[in-house]
Computed example of a mutant assay.
Amino acid sequence: MLPGGGGEEWKRRGAPAGEDAADADADAATSASAASLNDLCATAAAGAPAPFPTAAAWAVAALLAVGLGVGALVLAVVRSPALLVVAVLLAASVAAFLLWNAAAAASGHALRRFVDGLQASSLRVAADGQLVKITGFVSCGDISLISSYEKVENCVYTSTILRKCARWGSMTLNPWNRCSKWKLAHAERFAADFYVADAKSGRRALVKAGHHSKVVPLIDENLLVTTSRGTELSSTLEHWLEERNLSSEEAQIIRLEEGYIREGMRLSVVGVLSKKNGDAVILPPLEPQSTGFVLLSCLLPSYFDGIVLRLAAVPNSGVS
């Protein structure tokens, strides 16, 4: 389990002012934060599910190996390389296809392509229980988040990732300042319930990203800090490491990345629409959803389980 550290920074929207009121609502606010915040730290280490079962990949590899063996045997006996050439080309094509899909699933490329290609829905005409994509500007709910390192306020999702240079024993893989492989050392990811204003209908929907909901954030972290051997750490970074009981002596080659969704950003949300009691609420799907097969891109179906969050480009205002 990845440490959450001091990442549970939040503030209650519309909290009453005054010391007495703050003391009176302290217990209620603590309970509200525990119920509203969604700890997604483990998703930083968990990769996307493979687009094909591991057993199927091994079975295909075994069949290709048999084909290569038969081709080599025919070449030795009949002196005809035709079958071996065909087997090699087929094996190379299948291997490239599997590697392409594995990389697309691991990087989230397949899911991003699916979300970008999905037609935006309208809260006015979408039916109850329908899988929808709502695109619009974000506003905070009762609880807003503060990013861990940059201290950006009024966020609905925050992600701070610390990576260290991979080590073999006591020596780094690369004796120079460069690092060829980064290992996840610490992660803080949190989400809270928020609102998204539908650009098509003008209505607003509550997105249930808190309360332990399943969330799939397609939000890239920005690189904030990178160090090399002999780099003197800033006081801000040292304080951040100390708060999380991370040794600054071991922070010789590290990368600190942070991403967030802030109030006012334009976001695409994919989830199941609920219209009970006249309120529009976007919930996680009850079961994993498939992106479908993309023939032109040679992409096998990929699956996502939860509300998908994807930052959307702001439409061109026409001002150059």
Rank of each mutant, 00 (worst) to 15 (best):
G6R: 09
G7N: 04
A21H: 11
T30I: 06
S31G: 10
A32W: 11
A32M: 10
N38H: 10
T43V: 12
A44Q: 13
G47N: 07
P51I: 00
A55T: 11
A56L: 13
A56W: 11
V60T: 13
A61K: 04
A61I: 05
L64W: 06
L64M: 09
G67N: 15
V74P: 02
A76H: 15
A76N: 13
A76Q: 11
V78G: 08
A82G: 09
A82Y: 14
A82R: 11
L84Q: 08
V86S: 07
L90C: 02
F97V: 03
L99F: 12
N101D: 08
A102V: 13
H109F: 10
A110M: 00
F114C: 04
G117V: 07
S121V: 07
D128S: 10
D128T: 04
Q130N: 02
Q130F: 05
L131P: 03
D142A: 14
L145Y: 01
Y149W: 15
K151N: 14
K164Y: 14
W168V: 09
W176F: 12
W176Y: 08
R178F: 13
C179I: 04
A192V: 15
Y195C: 01
K208I: 04
K214T: 03
P217N: 04
S228A: 10
S228P: 00
L233A: 03
S234N: 07
H239N: 14
S248R: 13
I254S: 02
E257Y: 06
E263Q: 12
L273V: 09
L283F: 01
P284L: 03
F293L: 15
L299F: 13
S302L: 01
D305C: 07
D305N: 15
G306Y: 05
L311C: 01
A312L: 06
A312P: 05
S320E: 12
S320Q: 12
